[in-house]
Computed example of a mutant assay.
Amino acid sequence: MASPSIPDDPLEWIATQLSDPACKCSLGGFGAVGMFAQDADAEVALKDHAIVVGAAGATLRIERGANIRLVAFETISSDSLSWNHGVAICTDQSRLLAAQSDCLRETGPDRSAIDEADRHVPCFAAGVASQQMRVLLRTADSDLLHALRHHTGLNFFDLPASVMELLARSPIDWIVETPVGRLEFRQRLTSHSLNMPCPVFIDRDLLASGLTYARGIAIPPGWMPCGYIFPPHPARAAPGMPKHFDEREHLRFQQILDRFGIAELVSLKRQTEADIAAGTTVMQPLKTRHETDIVRVVLRQRLTMGHGAGLEPWMEVFDRPLLEAVRKRPDASNR
């Protein structure tokens, strides 16, 4: 049964997460994504039709009519001792975006702007697009407008260096638009921030890969992730920055996993935890990568929590890299 602290309404749950400055949110697709980082002054408004969250330099809107399904997951990390977690914001595949040109083109005033005052401002499709997202550029700056219009028809990655430099130092809004909502970044540079990087992560090779999400994440058939919620990690302050294990944050995410995770994988995880705690003999190798990864996550979490007794036979079967990493730790001889 779902925890009473977790609302049934996906938008209401997202709103509670976005009220926490330690929670992160991203919108986009594989190869082009914007990361929305809250701050202590972020304003979260849950309206009838959408969530709107405003923070310094960025505004996020997630639509109620997007037929959202939340899918919680845990995956193994590239760090052989750790794991990742998150909640995918999915929509059904019938709502995915139509194919877009890979060239820069003007689309007219931005009628979908979050702020009504921006709905008359000229907007350009950058040509960075997939069924999950498109990147838009919105500006009223005359020099930048002239440059963008002059280079309409070019692939975004082939724009001259002079245009990219102008993009980096002009007042412009970078927008990630998806079937579940949009994320707008206001670039209003000052003399102290002229080297500000592009607020949208764009990778040409990832866009060309044909992937729509990381292979380690299990997404139910017929659904597509267009964004992610990242609640605080119990063992990491940030990627590559370990912290003292926070049991409350761990238990909080386990409640989220029980509520929004794929039922078969959650059941496997809970059974594995029970088997290890009972000292049960190791099961045979599992059928799918996702099933195997669930067991590997359990092993990593138990080690992090200091419950390493009896894990070596399991690591021998399911996670040799973890076993080797454990054997190399300075305290290995004392266990």
Rank of each mutant, 00 (worst) to 15 (best):
N84M: 06
S80R: 14
T178N: 10
R134M: 07
T107S: 08
E184M: 03
H250Y: 15
D48N: 10
M315Y: 02
S333N: 09
W13M: 08
R186Q: 04
A55M: 02
D331S: 12
R335V: 07
C226N: 14
K328D: 12
Q254I: 13
T292M: 10
L96C: 13
A277V: 02
C103T: 14
M283D: 03
S5W: 07
Q254N: 09
I276D: 06
R215H: 08
A214L: 10
C90F: 09
T107F: 02
W13K: 02
R186W: 01
L104Q: 02
E247S: 09
L207Q: 11
Q131G: 12
F201E: 13
A147N: 02
L265D: 12
R302E: 05
A325C: 01
C103Y: 00
G31K: 08
C123N: 08
P199L: 01
A125G: 14
G28Q: 11
A113M: 09
F253A: 08
I217N: 12
Q271M: 06
L46W: 04
P313H: 02
D9Q: 03
S209L: 09
S209H: 11
A113Y: 02
G240W: 10
G279T: 04
G181Y: 05
C90N: 07
W314P: 03
R119A: 11
I217P: 12
N195L: 15
R61E: 14
K328Y: 01
R105L: 01
H233Y: 06
V317R: 11
G57Y: 04
R329Q: 13
Q38M: 03
P4N: 11
P330D: 07
R204H: 15
A126S: 15
A147L: 14
P242R: 06
S267D: 15
E63C: 06
P171M: 03
T190H: 05
T272C: 12
E74P: 01
S191Y: 00
D275F: 00
C90H: 10
L11G: 00
G222T: 02
M305R: 12
A208S: 13
D246F: 00
L251Y: 08
F245S: 03
E63R: 15
A88R: 08
H244I: 14
T59Y: 00
E247M: 13
